[in-house]
Write a protein that binds this DNA or RNA. Structure first.
Lengths: 341, 341
DNA sequence: GTGAAAGCGCTAACAA
DNA sequence: TTGTTAGCGCTTTCAC
């Protein structure tokens, strides 16, 4: 391949200097229309392609933003990635992805990697392992770069946040079951001490209390957020003397496991009600269709991107704490809870 | 924040030169153990973080690879992203993501963006819109950068390929149905002229011919690869005088739509057999569980990464055309086709 | 084993 | 409106 053409090549051809070329290419005001056109034409002719790495070195901006999250395998995060990349791209930003795979150590490596790549900011969601130690996130701010935390947030982390109202999510799911006439409502969720799951659980309890029902401790199952988790948990619940008449799954996969276990006992929702969280794209189409709480992944990605752009813009103004962006969860009632009450 | 520390700061503190510091940091042979340690220690003390942008400018390597694909919303691609990023990371590469959203124009922009970012290579899967015009991919090679195409490949594109044997995939699905005693096998797929879908269809026809069955043209439905597509297609099939006794869905979502339409007619597989492609993670858990052909997304991502690393290594050796990597599809027989034959 | 110095491709003062 | 000239932070010859 021929050597790559640079702005020097363009300058030489046109008998002007590189600064003029640079100005023309970046469409900077103080340039005559004629030279601008000449430069652009020559650039095309010489097959010029700007080297962003070089321009980053001088300008200090890479127009790359780092996205750090547990795993693209989890559909919620895949949707956020989709939305983030799509939106940021339209503002000239590229997306550098780093998955933590739920490991704290990997999360730390990720922050280092992204920072070394000189990203203009980081949008992150915490790993399940992340508890006390959040020093790696502090470093992002120490370097003066915007840090946005979404969905899996953290109490001690002073950074702008985008999430849904998780307590309301738990409340909505429970209230819906209550409205449908269910009374003995169980809840299968994760054993990890992640804030959003605690909050949903609190919403669950709140709804029960409002209905004058005191939460039954044996109805709370802590396990894994997987089909297996839902399956095992349900089997445990079915062994109770006082069986629940409805089960909330920590996410839609858990709900799938619940339905599976029920099916083996020849029980089909909504005779026992089942509801999940996340609105995975299969939920609407399985039989019976699964009631769920939509977590607004697409919207969340977009809000993260908007927030980032906003922070970047006012960078040199006041660095005051941003208001958290709290999205509202959406109840999607479907067959799996549609009991005639 | 304080100004970022550079190798100059380290050099000054230690009364040595930046070249020595650079050598120490990069662990280059010709350096004494003692200075190496001193540098590393000082680096830590000063909170030094290497600037990869700067090193990229001189070395010409960014250790970033560009991943260009239709959408992270499509679970197959999300899995490939997951796998790619995970594997590449372990070899020191970061992943820059660009989604085409099935648009040719966006695909072209994507190539430009990635090239401007000076990625060390591009791993791509074509958009549905991409047909004749593949000039943008040629540019990658013109710049002397490795280009790998996976899954959605293209006949006229001379680049190393990673895919599954799609004809075999179609064949396997059809053969499985035949083995289960189904004879009137319909096929709902996409109307887009994408190679892999054509090949699967050819596998379908091959299996039928081998069984002495001549494909019935009214059993081939061309529509969209969505739940809707499966639903609509199935309703059309059910209106035929001579109804099929089994339906192949172009992917698992299509299969979901097929099952939905059947359910509305009070038909439950396997009384009419249903099989999909992709092994989406819900397929195993819906009721009835869905037979499908696994497309090895995880393996595919890993093979792409391996191929990339291999090419990068031998870069300056012979640039001979690489053998395509063809993975074998895996039949996963489940309840939706489990008819007693 | 270490230092000196050029330069990667571009931007951005400062001059003119 | 355009040119001159330093760098940005690092790597890499070529000396010593």
């Amino acid at each position: 391949m021929a050597k790559k053409t640079t702005i020097y090549d363009i300058a030489k051809e046109l008998n002007i200097t590189v600064s003029t070329v640079s100005r023309a290419l970046n469409n900077i005001s103080t340039i005559s229309e004629s030279t601008r056109e000449a430069v652009l034409e020559m650039a095309k002719k010489l097959n010029y392609r700007p080297n962003k790495v070089a321009s980053s070195l001088t300008s200090g901006k890479t127009y790359i933003i780092g996205v750090l999250l547990p795993s693209a395998q989890i559909q919620f995060f895949a949707s956020v990635i989709h939305s983030l990349e799509k939106y940021l791209k339209s503002f000239g930003y590229s997306t550098l992805l780093y998955q933590t795979n739920e490991s704290l150590e990997s999360e730390k490596d990720g922050i280092s990697t992204l920072l070394e790549a000189q990203v203009d900011g980081i949008i992150a969601s915490l790993s399940l392992e992340t508890e006390e130690d959040i020093s790696h996130f502090e470093k992002v701010k120490e370097e003066g770069k915007p840090l946005i935390i979404f969905d899996r947030t953290h109490d001690n982390l002073d950074a702008p946040v985008v999430k849904i109202n998780d307590e309301q999510a738990g409340y909505l799911a429970t209230k819906h079951l209550l409205d449908k006439g269910y009374r003995k409502i169980a809840y299968i969720t994760t054993k990890h001490r992640i804030k959003i799951f605690r909050e949903r659980y609190e919403g669950y309890q709140k709804a029960l209390r409002e209905a004058g029902i005191s939460p039954n401790p044996s109805y709370a199952i802590l396990g894994e957020l997987t089909v297996e988790g839902g399956y095992t948990g349900t089997n445990n619940l079915l062994r109770l003397k006082d069986r629940p008449d409805a089960i909330i799954g920590g996410d839609d996969y858990v709900a799938l496991g619940i339905i599976k276990a029920l099916h083996e006992q020849h029980i089909t929702p909504p005779s026992i009600g089942v509801i999940g969280f996340a609105n995975q794209n299969f939920s609407e189409h399985i039989i019976p269709s699964l009631s769920t709480i939509d977590q607004q992944a697409i919207q969340m990605g977009k809000e993260c991107a908007k927030l980032f752009l906003k922070i970047i813009e006012r960078k040199h103004l006041e660095e005051k704490t941003m208001e958290p962006v709290i999205l509202s969860p959406i109840l999607l009632p479907r067959e799996s809870t549609n009991r005639k009450s």
